[in-house]
Amino acid sequence: MARVGNISISHIGFLTPGNYPDEDPLSGLEQTLEQLQYGEDLGFDSAWVRQRHLEPGISSASAFLAAATKAYLVAHSLGCLLAARLAGRSAARRVKGALLVAPCDLPVTENLHPGHISFGPMPTAPLPFPSIVVGSMNDAYMTVDRLTLFGRLWNAETRNIGLAGHINVASGFGRWRNGYRLLEGLKTQTRGRRHVVSMPPAFAM
């Protein structure tokens, strides 16, 4: 643990924008993976990859996990579904735990954004790593009942934080300190845990 003034620092991470040009998204993905590997070599504990909805060049979180010896996933909205689709895949062995914030319900999302999203059915297989699913009472992208359902199907701890919308900037969120606390609690929960990869995933509408 290091100290900077009166602040104790026990973990250090970095953020990479992850630029994926439309004409050559693979080159951007390769550069991002190189940055993750370089950060790990330097001793960073975590890396945060910016990803917008419908980001060109990224179809799975597996590519990023390939660059890590172990990883905690923090995902939002559609990213939660990418994380959930790791169930039954070999890449799940590299995941220590997942914090899934404001997952979107695909049928609802496709109705809100017609013609923009084609993710197929909702993943329903239990996740083989400890997970926390966080949602709200007034999220336009997933009702509380569906949040509870998928939290149970994914074998995750479910947290309803009240009237918080989609838990994003548009809902009034900035630096979400409670989110960091949830992640640290997840890390504490997973220390020393062994992983068992589940059977191939099932899906539901």
Rank of each mutant, 00 (worst) to 15 (best):
R152F: 08
F44G: 02
R177W: 13
H11M: 08
D24Q: 06
A71P: 04
A87N: 03
R177A: 15
L26A: 13
F44N: 01
H11W: 03
L147K: 01
S60W: 06
L15I: 13
H116Q: 15
V169F: 10
G97Q: 02
L73T: 05
P17W: 02
S118L: 10
H76V: 01
A164R: 05
S46F: 09
R89M: 14
F119P: 09
A91W: 06
G179T: 09
F14E: 04
L153K: 11
Q51M: 14
G39A: 01
Y180V: 15
G43L: 07
P126E: 08
S171F: 01
A204H: 09
W48P: 01
P21K: 00
R177M: 14
A91N: 08
M137S: 15
A67Q: 08
I117G: 05
K70R: 14
S59G: 14
T148E: 12
G97F: 05
C80S: 05
A61G: 13
L65S: 07
L36H: 02
E40R: 09
Y38P: 00
N178C: 10
V133K: 01
R89Y: 10
T124M: 06
G5M: 03
H76D: 01
K70P: 04
L127W: 02
T16A: 11
G5C: 03
G174Q: 05
G28Y: 04
T188S: 14
I7F: 12
L65Q: 07
G162L: 03
G18Q: 05
V108Y: 02
R193S: 14
E30Y: 07
M205V: 14
H116T: 14
E184K: 12
G5I: 03
T188H: 12
S136C: 02
Y72A: 08
A125M: 07
R50A: 13
Q31P: 11
G135A: 00
V169E: 15
A91Y: 07
A140S: 11
P56V: 05
N155G: 10
S77P: 00
S8T: 15
S10G: 10
G162T: 03
D105I: 02
R94K: 13
C104E: 07
R3Y: 10
T69D: 15
E157T: 12
E184Q: 13
C80Q: 04
D41E: 13
A84W: 01
E40F: 06
L112G: 05
S198D: 06
M142G: 00
